[in-house]
C-alpha cells in the first residue's frame, strides 16, 4: 500500500518545528506502525535525508515509550493499544496519516516526535514508592490481602507510564497516571502507612510541573492503552482530601 505521512519535524527543543509530508510506497499491512516508521527512515537515509526521531523499546506494549499522536488520537484509533501494537492494516491505501508528538507544557518536545517525559519520573520520585526496604519477594500469602484490593491494585499497577492520558486530556492533566500510582500502593498493606504523605507529595509535584487539573472528561481512560479506570481518580481525590483533613 501507499500512504502519505504528515509528520512533525523539530530539530531541537528551541526550533519552531513544522509538518512535513512524506509519501511512502511499498508499505505492507502486516507492518506495525513502528516498523513502518523504521522503513520510512531507511528510505530517508538512502535519500541522504535526516531520519525521523521517535522512541520505542519493548515493541510489545509493556514499556510505554512509544507514544505518538496518530490521526488525532494517542496511540492511534484503537482502544487499549500502544503505538507498537498498532498495525498498518488499520489504515487505508492512499491515506494521509498525521503523526504528532504528545503535546503538553510539562512534556516539551526534544526532537521530532520525542518528548521529555521526565515529569513523570519527578512525580514518582516525590512519593511513588514505599520507604522501607522491601527485600526479596516474600513468600506468597504471608501478608493476607483481600481479593478485591488485590485486583484493583493490580489493575492500577499495569500503568506503563506512557503519557497517553496527558496527551489526550484537554487540560494536559496527569491525574490518571498519578491516580494509578497512588491507588496501586494505597490499596496494599505495604503502601498504606505512607498513603497520606504520598498522595500529597505526588499531587504537589504534579501541580508544580504544570500539568492541568482533572475535569473528568474521561478522555484519559478511553485512550489509556491499559484501560486504567477513572475510578482511580476518585480514589486519588479521596486519598488527597483525607490526607489534607488529617493535618
Amino acid at each position: 500500500m501507499k500512504i502519505y505521512l504528515k509528520i512533525w519535524r523539530q530539530k531541537s527543543p528551541k526550533d519552531k518545528g513544522r509538518f512535513e509530508m512524506y509519501p511512502l510506497d511499498g508499505v505492507s499491512p502486516e507492518m506495525s506502525f513502528l516498523e513502518m516508521l523504521d522503513y520510512l527512515n531507511k528510505t530517508l537515509i538512502k535519500e541522504g535525508k535526516e531520519p525521523v526521531v521517535f522512541e520505542s523499546d519493548c515493541r510489545e506494549g509493556i514499556c510505554g515509550t512509544c507514544g505518538l499522536y496518530i490521526n488525532g488520537r494517542p496511540h492511534g484509533n484503537l482502544r487499549k493499544t500502544t503505538t507498537c501494537e498498532l498495525y498498518m492494516r488499520e489504515f487505508a491505501d492512499g491515506e494521509t496519516i498525521t503523526v504528532e508528538p504528545w503535546r503538553a507544557g510539562a512534556f516539551p518536545v526534544v526532537k521530532d516526535l520525542v518528548v521529555d517525559r521526565h515529569a513523570f519520573e519527578k512525580i514518582m520520585q516525590a512519593g511513588g514508592f514505599i520507604t522501607v526496604n522491601a527485600g526479596a519477594a516474600p513468600d506468597a500469602n504471608t501478608i493476607p490481602i483481600p481479593r478485591d484490593s488485590f485486583d484493583k491494585a493490580f489493575e492500577a499497577a499495569t500503568c506503563i507510564g506512557c503519557g497517553a492520558c496527558v496527551a489526550a486530556c484537554k487540560n494536559a492533566s496527569a491525574m490518571l497516571f498519578v491516580a494509578a500510582k497512588v491507588s496501586h500502593l494505597a490499596l496494599l498493606p505495604q503502601g498504606k502507612p505512607e498513603a497520606a504523605r504520598r498522595a500529597k507529595a505526588m499531587v504537589a509535584k504534579m501541580d508544580e510541573l504544570g500539568f492541568g487539573s482533572c475535569t473528568n472528561t474521561g478522555a484519559c481512560e478511553a485512550e489509556c492503552p491499559k484501560g486504567i479506570s477513572i475510578a482511580n481518580i476518585a480514589r486519588l481525590n479521596r486519598e488527597f482530601l483525607k490526607a489534607n483533613l488529617k493535618e
Binding site: F19, G72, R73, N77, A106, K170, N171, A222
Partner: peptide, 19 residues
C-alpha cells in the same frame, strides 16, 4: 490554568472519539 497547561496544540485532534 488548564488552558495554559498545553501551550502548543495538535494539528489534528479527535476529542469526540474519547469524551
Amino acid at each position: 490554568r488548564n488552558y495554559r497547561a498545553r501551550p502548543n496544540g495538535y494539528l489534528k485532534n479527535l476529542p469526540s472519539a474519547n469524551s
